[in-house]
Computed example of a mutant assay.
Amino acid sequence: MFPAVNSITTAEFAKWRSDSAKLQPLVLDARSPAEYGVSHLKSAIHIDPIVLHSKNALRISKDSPIVVYCSIGYRSAKIAQQLQKQGFTSIYNLSGGIFEWANEGRLLFKDDNQQTEFVHPYDANWGKMLKANYHPQNCSYLASR
């Protein structure tokens, strides 16, 4: 659906992040604020797709590496495509998104210092792609998405 967007697997991304000798990417979370509030990847920044349309939304070099993710990869691919249109050249969409990251048992954070085991399941249907043990006990906040 987004053939021009480069993908990176969760394994490749984890390896990249563990290599302190490599320039680390800006990590953008393309989910809703409610989803981001439940958990996100360490040092991820929530990005508002509407604000992203502004030419000065990201004040970094156009060749800076950027990894974008969402629940499974669709919304983040759209964001990655928008960034490419703005002239950014080193954009990657995290294949499988935070669901795959969590399902593989990788670290999640509620804020950058507080680890959590939960991921916002987006909705009842998409949440089936997330292992049940990563669903918060009380999913009543889904209505507020």
Rank of each mutant, 00 (worst) to 15 (best):
I79K: 00
D63R: 12
P33M: 10
T116P: 04
D19F: 06
S39P: 04
I47L: 05
A143K: 13
N6T: 11
R17D: 09
S18M: 11
Q115K: 15
S140H: 08
A34Y: 08
A102Y: 00
E100L: 10
C70T: 00
I91Y: 02
T116D: 08
G97E: 00
Q24A: 12
A132V: 14
T89Q: 13
S61M: 13
A143Q: 05
R31A: 09
F99P: 00
C70N: 01
N113S: 14
Y141E: 14
L83V: 10
K85N: 14
D19W: 09
S20Q: 10
K15N: 15
F2W: 06
K62Y: 04
N93G: 07
K22N: 09
F88W: 00
A124L: 15
L94S: 02
F2P: 02
A11W: 14
Y92Q: 09
Q137P: 06
Y122F: 13
T9I: 06
A30N: 09
N56Q: 15
G73L: 03
E104R: 08
N138W: 06
V38K: 09
D123W: 10
Y92I: 00
S54H: 12
N103L: 06
N133P: 03
V38Q: 06
D111N: 13
Q86N: 07
G97C: 01
Q81H: 15
T89I: 13
H53A: 14
L94F: 00
